[in-house]
């Protein structure tokens, strides 16, 4: 990293000089460090991707990007601090699909997602992996569906808590297949693995990062991934779509958001810097280790995607009657 950053500094130095010239005229953005809020505790995928992103964003942006954990209330606390902060481009938040799930699920929200936050870019995409207990006589997704239909009321599925992507992916799976399975929430998906190994819970839609330690030596069995194309991490596992549930897609995407009212040129600048950072081979390598692929949408496409995701999960929540009260 050290050598890389020196190299990058050498390359970007002339550009920075130009920037400095412009700064004299009108204090061009960014003139001070940028804060990237990560609304979850250290140790999860957001933390990992967020810190990596902050590190690689610093070069193209020309100012340090500081990642800061503000955990609490399923991401609401951290998102709220950014929603309320000044729309000057120095306050950003990295969030997962919970940002569109929370407004439907929670009876009261401290902020209005579509009025107070604007999408800068959807930076990454990552499928979930369907893992099953090795004690279960199930080798494929079709087996799992058949087993669930033959043994109604027997299956449990684990999640990282109510309203998390693993939970709603499981609900969507239930709704699409008509099988009955009981939702068993854990504090994090990692905590559910001992119970899955001993067949107390039978399956889960897990993040790839959470599943990897257990799938490498077959202590749990990966049978499918939830993207529309196969994951390079599990090239042998078909997608859920391939396995028969046409159009089934669950994406554990991550996006960067800024308070509404952030000037368009600042958003553009950030979006450009994000796109540059996402092309860095070192970053791509770091993302790939946890099954995450860079995406980098424009602000407009990101906003449209966000609305679509909001509608998709709203329907799953309402059809499954998973209201919070």
């Amino acid at each position: 990293m050290k050598f890389g950053s020196i190299l990058r500094a050498v390359i970007t130095a002339p550009a920075l000089c130009l920037l400095a010239g412009a700064a004299l005229a009108q204090q061009a953005y960014p003139s001070k460090p940028v804060r990237l809020v990560l609304p979850y505790s250290p140790g999860g995928i957001i933390d990992y991707v967020g810190r990596t992103m902050a590190q690689y964003l610093t070069g193209p942006l020309g100012q340090p990007v500081i990642a800061e954990n503000r955990p609490g209330a399923g991401g609401i606390t951290g998102t709220d601090t950014v929603a309320r902060s000044a729309p000057d481009g120095y306050n950003l938040v990295l969030m997962d699909p919970a940002i569109v799930i929370n407004p439907t699920l929670q009876p009261s929200m401290p902020y209005d997602l579509f009025k107070q936050l604007a999408t800068v870019s959807i930076i990454s995409t990552s499928p979930e992996v369907v893992v099953v207990s090795p004690e279960l006589p199930v080798k494929t997704l079709a087996d799992l569906i058949a087993y669930g239909k033959a043994n109604p009321g027997k299956l449990n599925f684990a999640s990282a808590g109510i309203g998390t992507t693993p939970h709603l992916a499981g609900e969507l799976f239930k709704q699409r297949t008509g099988i009955d399975a009981t939702h068993v929430p854990y504090k994090s998906i990692g905590q559910s693995y001992p119970d899955m190994m001993s067949n107390k819970v039978q399956f889960a839609f897990s993040s790839i990062a959470g599943a990897l330690p257990f799938t490498t030596d077959n202590r749990v069995r990966p049978i499918a991934t939830s993207g529309l194309t196969r994951s390079p991490v599990y090239p042998d596992a078909p997608t859920v779509d391939e396995a028969g549930l046409k159009g089934f897609e669950v994406d554990l995407w991550l996006g960067i958001f800024a308070p509404t009212g952030t000037p368009a040129d600042v958003v553009e600048k950030l979006n450009g810097a994000i796109k540059v950072a996402l092309k860095d081979p070192e970053l791509i390598k770091a993302f790939a280790k946890v099954g995450v692929e860079p995406r980098g949408t424009s602000a407009k496409d990101g906003e449209a995607f966000l609305k679509a995701e909001f509608g998709k999960w709203k329907k799953v929540i309402e059809d499954g009657n998973i209201k919070d009260q």
Binding site: S41, P42, G43, G44, D47, Y48, S188, G190, A209, L212, P213, F214, T216, D217, R219, A286, K289, V290
Partner: peptide, 20 residues
């Protein structure tokens, strides 16, 4: 959580913690 971070750090190095 500290252990979760260490697992993350190991995975970055391509080592997946487990019996292996």
């Amino acid at each position: 959580p500290t252990m979760a971070l260490m697992i993350g750090a190991l995975m970055v190095h391509g080592i997946t913690p487990g019996p292996r």
